[in-house]
Nucleic acid binder design. Structure first.
Lengths: 239, 239
DNA sequence: CCCGGCCGGTGACAGCCATCACTCGGTGTG
DNA sequence: CACACCGAGTGATGGCTGTCACCGGCCGGG
């Protein structure tokens, strides 16, 4: 049976076949059943705004499949992509727990399935299910960890080239496909979005990528980037 | 009776008179007693290294009194002060929970009292005491929240002046003493350290502060800074 | 088929700021 | 008292990169 957006939909967390791979969802049957009872599953198209920076927290979203970008922006309209969230992550936890406004905005960049849990239900869930609370603490630790990496990269990089090199290396470690020639990456972001990830402008990204091409460190064909000289990238990075 | 470093030492968390004010420590008597059983209290002089970035996590430190700076540094030796931790904060939680290396270094900048809890004990504590787990999740949420603020400031600020203005405004909201003339701040950091907080150089900090003085936005006398025109600072900030 | 919009590529230019190199005053120490 | 050391202040300079401007290619829609 075809499903919307060609997603493999799991209506029931208990029977979810990828549950074991997910840091948060990997909990005992009884806890997951409790989760099933309070969650609302929905499939969102690309570009859906899940929540907006500054908004009072309505609850949390568990990203079952698809990816979402977390952004923050200045009053001048400049946008910073804080993170690309992957399946398994829980979005909006910290704001929900603290009862403070969401500190970032979340927007799907692919069709995505999400489980929404209302704030009250989620808090009760944490209080009643110690295992859930523990997994939430882990999830938050992961978030803090990756936020620290971001801070390091933004604060310590000397040049924009360094930040971009670091980003490419990150991608190599994450979704890279290693080939004899080098690491092949699928980059589904525009130069504009890459710029927003490292806090610079589109033109600068274009220029640095051109430079890397000229120096035969990378090759670009459409949306695939082939990293030929990973070591050369590493040499550019001091963070 | 005089105590080392003139600190008011609490050997016993249960009888601690500031417990109620502390996000983490504000727990039921039974939970706090369990905490008392596994903690090691010690007083550290200024400049003590509690843990170092990259080190495997030994456990967590609860900051009872005094402040500590959390730093991260590049291979080139450039240092970024990620945060000044205040009493009540728990340091090293995320690394301890994940079992990954500490992502920052922690160093006391004043004489400080800390409770150390070994990793195994802490993890058991979280598993056995749901209330502790909940408070840890809150603590982590706070940490994530402040990390996000840092990311915003580092990534979205257009100029160094903007970052410094934002830092001054932060200080006004935190420890500022409001007077008819403006907000009086005690700045116990050197220009060098301020530079490390906003990812710039000492010279630039000196220059920007001089500029603010010339424009009569601030006055500096020794280690006290008087903010005369808070609004002027706000105008400099778009983040 | 043409047109508009989005994305990528490039050049010119100015401005911010990191770097280097001094100076100066205060503090502590031998 | 001389000296070292640290923090602060300042000038000169060069390079990175943000900004503005324009062009070309691609794609989808009328």
């Amino acid at each position: 049976m075809p499903t919307p957006y060609n997603l493999d939909i799991h209506n029931n967390c208990r029977d979810c076949d990828v549950r074991g791979d997910r840091l948060f969802c990997n909990m005992s049957d009884s806890t997951v059943s409790a989760l099933d009872a309070i969650k609302f599953t929905a499939v969102y198209p690309k570009g859906s705004l899940l929540f907006v920076e500054g908004e009072q927290p309505r609850g949390v979203f568990i990203l079952c499949s698809g990816r979402a970008k977390l952004t923050t922006s200045s009053t001048e309209g400049k946008v910073l992509i804080v993170k690309i969230a992957e399946p398994g992550e829980v979005l909006g936890v910290s704001a929900t727990i603290l009862g403070k406004a969401y500190e970032v905005s979340a927007e799907t960049i692919e069709p995505a399935q999400l489980n929404f849990i209302k704030r009250d239900d989620f808090m009760k869930f944490l209080n009643v299910e110690p295992e859930a609370c523990m997994h939430t603490a882990q999830q938050l630790s992961e978030k803090y960890h990756s936020a620290q990496r971001e801070i390091r990269s933004l604060g310590l990089s000397q040049t924009t080239g360094e930040k971009l090199a670091k980003l490419l290396l990150d991608w190599c470690d994450r979704g890279g496909e290693t080939t004899p020639k080098g690491v092949r990456l699928k980059v589904l972001l525009t130069h504009e979005e890459i710029a927003q990830m490292i806090g610079t402008t589109r033109e600068t990204v274009t220029r640095i990528l051109s430079d890397l091409k000229r120096r035969k460190i990378i090759e670009v064909k459409g949306s695939t980037v082939m990293v030929l000289e990973k070591d050369a990238l590493k040499d550019m990075v001091s963070v």
